[in-house]
Design a protein around this nucleic acid. Structure first.
Lengths: 117, 117
DNA sequence: CCATCATATGCCGATATCGGCATGCGTCAA
DNA sequence: TTGACGCATGCCGATATCGGCATATGATGG
């Protein structure tokens, strides 16, 4: 009985976490320092439960840390997880510098071959 | 009649496109040059329709180009769209270099305050 | 024109996602 | 202890997503 596999367990990785615009906004805000949930929600114009849910995702992939501060819970940035994303995209740096007006790797190979003759 | 808003129209942006592991694999493969759909599907161990669907997403966000080559359709990389992702993550570079052993921005602020007294 | 190859698309089922809401739970202050 | 505050969680509805499959579409060659 083949049970259909609906979705690759893509959840819980950093690429997925930052695919959400609001979560990216949260991370940007946290660069300025720790903040409680309510403040984040307010600054980003979302509800408190909404903020909490996004923070949960970010926490599960390790992009934020939380610590209790009395009645509040302060969320802080842990950007180390963004480094792999930076490096992965960096692996394409030489490609976005190429002129793509109408060319591509294949065509450029042809061009080079002609020059060598 | 408030119709519930289910999901932010996050589709069709680059962050979302590269959130899928298989799509990232496709991009990596295409660094070596253009390839037809079937070849990509084969190299990545996925079905042809599966490859076509992922390629469609990548094309819609501009990360790949396609051109007809006789009976085939060659897909090629257009990595320019990855640059914003690289730069966005780069905005956190100073943060992933900090020591997070047990510290965070807030605690560091406190430390500095003490030193100044 | 027809058969064939290459690719795209449509449909389906299972599940993940997101927002809104209500509510639970812990902490602090009076 | 009780009320108020801060936050997390659970439930729901709507929708997006992904894989598998069948099939449509398109181009090529005979």
């Amino acid at each position: 009985m083949m049970v259909p596999m609906a979705r690759a367990a893509t959840t819980s990785d950093v690429f997925n976490a930052i695919a959400e615009p609001q979560r990216r906004e949260i991370l940007v805000l946290l660069r300025a320092g720790e903040r409680p949930v309510t403040e984040l929600a307010q600054e980003l114009g979302m509800t408190q439960p909404g903020a909490s849910k996004h923070l949960r995702v970010l926490r599960e992939v390790g992009l934020v840390r939380d610590r209790k501060a009395g009645k509040q819970r302060l969320y802080g940035l842990d950007a180390r997880g963004l480094r792999p994303v930076h490096e992965w995209t960096g692996g394409f740096e030489q490609f976005w510098n190429e002129s793509f007006d109408r060319l591509d790797a294949y065509v450029q190979d042809l061009k080079q071959t002609q020059q060598e003759e």
